[in-house]
Computed example of a mutant assay.
Amino acid sequence: MRVPAKPPLEGIKRSLDKKRAERQGKRLPRDGFVRETFSLPRQEARAKAREWLERWPKQAYWTEIESWAERPGDMIEFTMRRLPSAD
């Protein structure tokens, strides 16, 4: 019994590469959230997080601090995320 040959995938590969190249200029990842990463002194980091939460309320934009880490020198590196628009 002979095993069938694999189908050529070059056409699919070219198509995927073309689509990915078209999307390179867009900022939204597949999950639809807008993200921005900051590295600020502790007090400025708190102020920036408050600013985001006041400008884009959690109830409408699902705004949240996605991740954060303490860095040397009392610096806080954090990523904020939100939906691009509210309905």
Rank of each mutant, 00 (worst) to 15 (best):
R20A: 11
R30Q: 13
R14H: 09
D74A: 09
E66G: 02
E70S: 09
P72V: 02
M80C: 09
E54V: 08
K6F: 07
V34Y: 14
F33R: 11
D74R: 11
R23P: 00
D31Q: 06
P7W: 00
R30A: 14
P41Q: 04
P4S: 10
R82C: 06
P84T: 06
A60F: 10
R82H: 15
Q59A: 15
T63A: 06
W68H: 13
K58L: 03
M80I: 14
R55F: 05
Q43F: 07
A86E: 05
V3Q: 10
G32N: 10
Q24W: 03
E44P: 06
R46Q: 05
E36V: 07
R82Y: 12
P4I: 03
R81M: 08
R35E: 11
A86P: 03
P84W: 09
W56I: 03
F33Y: 15
W52I: 01
R81A: 07
A47N: 09
R30T: 09
T79K: 06
E64L: 11
T37Q: 15
E66S: 12
W52D: 02
Q24R: 15
L9T: 15
M75V: 05
T37R: 15
G73I: 01
G73S: 09
E36R: 10
A60E: 12
D74K: 08
W52L: 08
A45W: 00
F78W: 03
A5F: 08
E51F: 13
E44K: 12
R46W: 05
L53K: 10
D17L: 14
